[in-house]
Amino acid sequence: EGHGSRGFVLIILRDYILSLSPAGSHSLRYFYTGTNGLPGLPEFVIVGYVDEVQIMQYDSESRRAVSRQRWMDEITQEDPQYWERNRQIAQATQPIFKVGVQIALQRFNQTSGGVHTLQEMYGCELRDDGTTGGFEQFAYDGQDFIAFDKETQTWIAAVQQAVITKHKWEADQAFNHGLKGYLEQECIEWLKKYMRYGKEMLERKVRPEVRIYDRPGSEKNSIALTCIVTGFHPRAIDVAWIRDGDTRMDNAHTDGILPNEDGTYQIKKTIEIGSDDKHMYACEVEHSSLEQKL
């Protein structure tokens, strides 16, 4: 369907989604997570994202598919049964994942007493040049398990335990043909629809704020220079330390681009220099909201 986990699972997924969102493209992605041995957390969770923005969530405790963005609620004006249909799909998938976790336990000769996860990610991408991409893959306990190659309509087993699944799924040619069609056509149509509804949020441009501070470095007689860039949207940005106006410093430490609570982003980049260093250092920022570099 144009189809989350609480706690640590959702955090992991969000970080993963951010790492998969290249500049100059839009994507629709769904993550299904089935768990075993995690008391206090739902056994089954679905989260859906357009780009890096969460649009929906379902979990096995509430048994409801709910909107995570105000503009997603507008879909019911055009499609009154949208959320009910998604709820039914999610509830029908839930027992399949429960069985899937048990099958994986057997394949890997594991007992049901430990903590185990089965995850599925599928979706599509629409690039600025008009080309598209589609993907469908599964992971078990955080490791690749099996993935769909839509061009050949075959399944690629990442581990020996997935070979049985590969042969079983490749025998169902009608399903694989339908999956290819969904990823290349229907998924893209849903993505375009969501982008239309969420245009104001998804395509907004917010200028970054830049701050620089220094502190003692990790080595004796060194200084750490940190450039903090925050409050920007969209996510794609280039931040670099420049020495003497022309030398880009490639040894900067960063934790990457991180989300802020208001839907914008932040990034920090730190370099260490000698306390007697006489060079001039500047933090340069390039972002689509800026007419010229900061």
Rank of each mutant, 00 (worst) to 15 (best):
G34F: 10
T35K: 10
N36E: 14
G37R: 09
G37V: 09
L38Q: 13
P39C: 05
P39W: 13
G40P: 03
L41S: 11
P42M: 03
P42T: 03
E43S: 13
F44G: 00
F44W: 05
V45G: 12
V45M: 13
I46R: 03
I46V: 14
V47M: 04
G48C: 04
G48W: 00
G48Q: 04
Y49A: 05
V50T: 08
V50E: 04
D51L: 08
D51T: 07
E52I: 06
V53L: 12
Q54Y: 02
Q54C: 06
Q54L: 07
Q54E: 13
I55S: 04
M56R: 02
M56V: 06
M56F: 10
M56H: 06
M56N: 08
Q57S: 11
Q57I: 01
Q57K: 09
Q57Y: 06
Y58F: 11
D59F: 05
D59P: 09
S60T: 07
S60R: 04
E61V: 15
S62T: 09
R63P: 05
R64I: 09
R64K: 13
A65Y: 11
S67I: 06
R68Y: 09
Q69A: 07
Q69M: 07
R70N: 13
W71S: 06
W71A: 02
D73P: 00
D73T: 06
E74K: 02
E74D: 06
E74V: 01
I75H: 04
I75W: 09
I75P: 00
T76P: 05
T76G: 12
T76M: 13
T76C: 08
E78G: 05
D79P: 03
D79N: 11
P80T: 03
P80F: 03
Q81C: 04
Q81R: 12
Y82S: 01
W83A: 01
E84L: 10
E84K: 10
R85Q: 14
N86H: 09
N86Q: 09
R87L: 08
R87D: 12
Q88G: 05
Q88Y: 06
A90S: 15
Q91F: 08
A92M: 05
A92G: 08
A92V: 06
T93Y: 07
T93Q: 11
T93W: 04
Q94P: 00
Q94C: 02
Q94V: 04
Q94W: 02
Q94D: 11
P95T: 09
I96P: 00
I96G: 01
I96T: 09
F97I: 04
K98I: 10
K98L: 12
V99H: 12
G100I: 02
G100C: 04
V101M: 07
V101W: 01
A104N: 05
A104Y: 00
L105Y: 00
L105M: 04
Q106S: 14
R107S: 11
F108H: 15
N109F: 00
N109C: 02
T111Y: 03
T111Q: 13
S112T: 13
S112P: 15
G113R: 14
G113N: 15
G113C: 07
G114E: 14
V115H: 15
V115K: 15
V115L: 14
H116R: 14
